[in-house]
């Protein structure tokens, strides 16, 4: 049986994690990743207590700090990769802005009677162009990661092997892996460097929220419709850990997205189709069984007409 992955809404103000764990029938120990909280990684008392004192924090952030201070060569390569990723991202943004402007303009345009098919064809072409920009960026970023992997050979490094062995031992008695939010790229890169998902295996369940849910996706999509600076164009940042497929998680969607703006909602839904864009606000939940998604009542996704609709399998 494939592993179950449950994505839930933000946990700070209305925690639902304990209830989610209970619904999964997990009675034993729980491995927790709070690496997205960076230097506050260890401040997990609330989480620990919420889960009845059953958590073991994997300390992925601290472990990578340790690796970086012990292995100067690897640190240099990590920094070099970060520089290349930053440069690639800046270039991607330039192309993306133009492609998105065109798509948005066409989606805003009212169809002229008798020529609806022409407008729709143009809209679809504009969206295809956006998808091409996204895909070519993902390809470039994947190549940068592959270069890094080939050069750094993390699995062969003593500095990393030691931590992976410790993690394996920590994970062994655990029945569930919980991944909290925070800085999505820090979280993603640390989970990848330590190969936490590889060590966790394919059978045991995972619960994740906010950046945790994003890191597990096939692609990490960053988004905000009203940033204080810039156009607010959602960006495909880089490939995620691909623990599931077919869904783009949108944590804090109500705060970060103009969900009443049909053009923006429709654009997001169509751009990432056939994946579904799911608004992961407080009290929401979607579940992946390895082949299909099921949403809890009240959990909504963005649709191509620019509306929000219930997530159905």
């Amino acid at each position: 049986m494939a592993r179950k992955i449950v994505l839930i809404g933000p946990q700070r103000l209305q925690p639902t994690l304990a209830a989610t764990v209970e619904s999964l029938g997990v009675a034993g120990r729980i491995a927790a990743v709070t690496a997205g909280w960076e230097e506050r990684e260890g401040e997990d008392r609330e989480l620990h207590e919420h889960l009845g004192g059953r958590t073991t924090n994997l300390e992925a952030w601290t472990r990578v700090e340790d690796v970086m201070s012990a292995d100067g060569e690897l640190t240099g390569m990590i920094r070099q990769r970060a520089d290349r990723l930053r440069a690639a991202h800046e270039l991607y943004r330039l192309r993306l802005a133009h492609a998105l402007d065109a798509a948005r303009e066409l989606l805003k345009r009212e169809p002229q009677a008798g020529f609806e098919d022409l407008l729709e064809a143009e809209r679809e072409a504009a969206l295809r162009a956006v998808r091409v920009v996204d895909a070519s960026h993902l390809e470039r970023v994947s190549a940068i990661h592959a270069e890094f992997g080939a050069e750094a050979q993390p699995a062969r490094r003593t500095s990393i092997r030691k931590h992976r062995a410790e993690l394996e031992a920590q994970l062994k008695p655990c029945e569930l892996l919980c991944i909290a939010g925070g800085h999505v790229v820090v979280l993603l890169h640390r989970l990848a460097l330590l190969d936490v998902l590889g060590l966790w295996g394919e059978r045991r369940p995972i619960v994740a929220w906010s950046a945790g849910a994003m890191a597990l996706a096939e692609r990490v999509v960053l988004f905000h419709d009203d940033p204080p600076q810039g156009a607010g164009n959602a960006e495909v940042y880089e490939p995620g850990l691909a623990a599931y497929s077919g869904l783009v998680p949108l944590p804090h969607a109500r705060r970060r997205l103009r969900l009443h703006d049909g053009v923006r909602v429709g654009l997001m839904a169509r751009r990432f189709a056939p994946d579904r864009c799911v608004a992961l606000d407080a009290l929401t939940r979607v579940e992946w069984d390895g082949s299909a998604w099921r949403g809890e009542a009240g959990t909504q996704q963005l649709d191509r007409q620019g509306h929000l609709t219930e997530v159905r399998s």
């Binding site: 700070r12 997205g36 950046a211 905000h224 204080p228 600076q229």
Partner: peptide
């Protein structure tokens, strides 16, 4: 203040999802 401060000191808005 929002425009000025966030331009001079951009926050981690795009990267952090708590």
């Amino acid at each position: 203040l929002r425009e000025g401060l966030s331009w001079l000191f951009p926050g981690p808005l795009w990267m952090v999802y708590e």
